[in-house]
C-alpha cells in the first residue's frame, strides 16, 4: 500500500536513480518480538486478519499446536510452535511469530524483475505493490525466510506489510496493539535495539538464559523485525529461523556480475557479427547463368 507520507528508498526492477530518495530525514522503524514472553495466544494473527480484511482460512491438523505449516498468501502472521528438548531432558515451548522480516537488504526486492512491484520505504518497510506484480515468483526464491506467497487465482504475491498504511498515519501495526503480554513492541529501529538488548541483559542476569540474544541478522543488513531469543546460538529451533540468512548466492550472481557478463556477451555478439560482415562480406554463389543469388 503506497502512501504519500512514505518516501521510497529502493524500487524493484528499476534502472537509474530512485525519485525522492534521501530527500527526507526518516527514522527506520522496527518491530521487536520477545519470544520469551510470547504465550502463543494468536491474538496477533487475528488482529492481522482483521486489519487487512483477510478471510479465515482452513487449518491443517498435524497433532500439534501448529495450525498450518507456514504463512500463506492470505495469512501473513503465523505463530510457530516448537517443543524444544533442553540438554537436561526437560521440555520448553519455543513460540515465534513468523512473518516478513523487513530486511534492510531484501532478497525479494533484489530478485524482482517488475518495476515497482516491491518497494522499500525510507522507514525500512518492504512493501509489495500488487498492481505492478507480474506473478513470476522470483521473490519467493529471493527471500531467505520463505515469506512471499503466491495466489494462483490472481497471480499476485502477498506478505506482511508491517501495516505500512497504519504506520504512515502514525499508528503502530495491528499485531502490536493486540498482544496481551506486551511481548510485541514497535518504534524506531534504534529504540527497539536498545529495548531488545536490555531485555537480553535481564534474561542473562536474572533468568539464567546465558545464551539469550537479539536476532538482527547482519547477513541481510539487519531486519525491521527483530527477535529476543532465549538461545541465540540455536535460532533453527524456533521453527527454522535461519542462523545466518543471506540473499541466496545464485540470486546475487544472477542480478549482479552474471547480468553484466551476459549483457556484454550479447552486445559483443552483435558487434562481432557486424564486424565479420564488414570485414568479409557475404558468401555469394555464381549460379549456372552467372547471376548472383
Amino acid at each position: 500500500m503506497s502512501s504519500a507520507a512514505l518516501r521510497i528508498q529502493k524500487i524493484s526492477g528499476h534502472s537509474g536513480p530512485v525519485p525522492g530518495q534521501d530527500t527526507q530525514r526518516q527514522q527506520k522503524v522496527a518491530k521487536l518480538i520477545d519470544t520469551t514472553t510470547c504465550i502463543g495466544c494468536k491474538a496477533c494473527e487475528v488482529a492481522c486478519l482483521e486489519w487487512n480484511d483477510l478471510p479465515f482460512r482452513e487449518t491443517v491438523f498435524d497433532n500439534t499446536y501448529q495450525t498450518m505449516p507456514e504463512t500463506a498468501w492470505n495469512y501473513w502472521n503465523l505463530i510457530k510452535f516448537n517443543e524444544h528438548e533442553r540438554t537436561d531432558g526437560s521440555f520448553q515451548w519455543l513460540m515465534r511469530k513468523d512473518g516478513c522480516m523487513h530486511c534492510a537488504d531484501p532478497g525479494c526486492l533484489a530478485a524482482c524483475p517488475a518495476e515497482g512491484a516491491i518497494v522499500q520505504y525510507q522507514n525500512g518497510i518492504v512493501d509489495f505493490q500488487q498492481d505492478n506484480c507480474i506473478g513470476c515468483q522470483y521473490c519467493v526464491t529471493g527471500c531467505p525466510f520463505n515469506i512471499p506467497k503466491f495466489n494462483p487465482q490472481t497471480k499476485k504475491v502477498f506478505k506482511c506489510t508491517l501495516c505500512s498504511d497504519r504506520v504512515s498515519q502514525g499508528l503502530e501495526p495491528a499485531c502490536i496493539k493486540a498482544c496481551p503480554t506486551g511481548c510485541l513492541h514497535f518504534g524506531t529501529k534504534d529504540d527497539m535495539k536498545e529495548l531488545g538488548q536490555s531485555r537480553v541483559q535481564q534474561l542473562k542476569e536474572h533468568s539464567g538464559y546465558s545464551n539469550a540474544g537479539l536476532y538482527d541478522p547482519p547477513g541481510v543488513g539487519g531486519t525491521g523485525v527483530m527477535y529476543v531469543l532465549h538461545d541465540i546460538t540455536n535460532p533453527e529451533a524456533y521453527g527454522g529461523l535461519p542462523a545466518n540468512p543471506r540473499v541466496p548466492l545464485s540470486v546475487r550472481l544472477w542480478k549482479g556480475p552474471l547480468k553484466w557478463l551476459g549483457n556484454l556477451a550479447m552486445v559483443g555478439g552483435l558487434i562481432g557479427v557486424t564486424m565479420h560482415y564488414l570485414r568479409f562480406g557475404p558468401k555469394q554463389v555464381e549460379d549456372d547463368k552467372g547471376e548472383h543469388e
Partner: peptide, 29 residues
C-alpha cells in the same frame, strides 16, 4: 534453476545471433 535458466538462455542467444546473421546476411540464398 535460476542460474541454469539464464546460463542456458545466454548460450542459445549466442547461437541464435550467429544463426540469424548467417541466414539473413552472410549466406546469400
Amino acid at each position: 534453476a535460476i542460474l541454469l535458466h539464464v546460463a542456458a538462455a545466454l548460450l542459445t542467444i549466442g547461437a541464435f545471433i550467429i544463426h540469424v546473421y548467417m541466414g539473413t546476411a552472410m549466406v546469400r540464398g
